[in-house]
């Protein structure tokens, strides 16, 4: 595929490399060094770093400020943006601000409902949803216009991403919904964390059957388990997560102090297996509050060193 933006992530994917992205969650406070440290520890091992936008509706340092910091370190940020907290005025304004710092990747999300976060009493916005955010970025980039019709002089040059959860219900519409996001303008997809490999492969087969893998880059989402407690929590408490019992059984089968290592092993085995799945263009490794493990995963999965496309 040809490139449409100056995004390094897009260039790597267009060159046919398996891309590797990771994410860093900003702190619940004002210390920017936390972001810088996390980014520094993984920077050499990934092509781009997502910065979450108040994930699970818990207030954290903003994604935009953190992305600017990462950009100024010479690394490639992916600005995550949810539609829960801002209306179309705030959203377009933030996109302009991000573009002014040469942030070239955006991940368009609706966002977790505020009832899951630390401010369940907050009003939510949801002026638009994730699909409409994709349309909005595309409109700004390709037509140089705002939703109002106003023509901008300088347009944001952003590689447009979206998330998709192959494990949510109803399963039969999940390929269809991906098609809808692609129709809206999504160029890359970072999936929900995969644990149920069979179900994921069935979804990928549907994606390939419809030829969607030729229209959008798909990065398989992976989150290593720190232990059996985390696996159970993910299974029972996190919306949209599908953790099969054999993962829990496998983690329970090793002593507590070895469980984290086993979690990493599972993650690496998954990557090796997914490399063989048609339509997979890379991996999105979300090591939640465990960013320091990303280099090990990338290295052991045979994805290091990262390609240079400059």
């Amino acid at each position: 595929m040809n490139t449409t933006t100056p995004s390094k992530l897009e260039r790597i994917l267009a060159a046919g490399h398996l891309a590797v992205t990771s994410e860093c969650g900003p702190p619940r406070g004002c210390n920017g060094n936390v972001v810088a440290e996390k980014a520094r520890s993984i920077g050499d091992y990934v092509d781009a770093i997502n910065v979450t936008d108040n994930q699970t509706a818990v207030v954290r340092m903003c994604s935009l400020a953190s992305c600017i910091r990462i950009k100024q370190m010479g690394l490639e940020p992916v600005l995550q943006m949810v539609t829960r907290d801002r209306n179309r005025i705030g959203i377009q304004s933030d996109i302009m601000g991000a573009a002014s710092f040469d942030i070239h990747n955006i991940l368009c999300l609706t966002g977790d409902h505020q009832s899951f976060g630390d401010h369940p009493e907050a009003a939510n916005v949801f002026d638009m949803d994730s699909t409409q955010l994709i349309q909005t970025v595309k409109l700004m980039r390709d037509e140089g216009r705002l939703l109002s019709g106003f023509e901008m002089k300088d347009c944001p040059k952003m590689f447009i991403g979206a998330a998709e959860n192959p494990f949510a219900d109803p399963f039969e519409i999940r390929v269809s919904r991906l098609a809808k996001k692609v129709a809206a303008g999504a160029q890359f997809i970072q999936t929900q964390c995969i644990y149920n490999m069979d179900k994921f492969k069935r979804w990928m087969q549907g994606v390939v059957d419809r030829g969607l893998h030729e229209k959008v880059y798909i990065l398989a989402g992976l989150t290593p388990m720190k232990g059996v407690g985390m696996a159970k929590y993910m299974k029972n408490r996190v919306p949209g997560m599908d953790v099969p019992d054999d993962i829990i059984k496998r983690l329970s089968g090793v002593p507590k102090e070895k469980q984290a290592e086993e979690g990493i092993n599972i993650c690496i085995e998954q990557i090796q297996e997914l490399k063989e799945v048609k339509g997979i263009n890379g991996f999105h490794i979300m090591a939640i509050e465990w960013e320091e493990k990303v280099p090990e995963i990338v290295e052991r999965a045979g994805l290091y060193p990262r390609p240079r496309v400059d």
Partner: peptide, 26 residues
Amino acid sequence: CSKRMANGPCGGSANGKCEVNKEIAC
């Protein structure tokens, strides 16, 4: 829809129920 999405369902829909509360239909 708890997120009043125009292009739903979101990734939290499970067994026909909303992620916000299992008592709420998606």
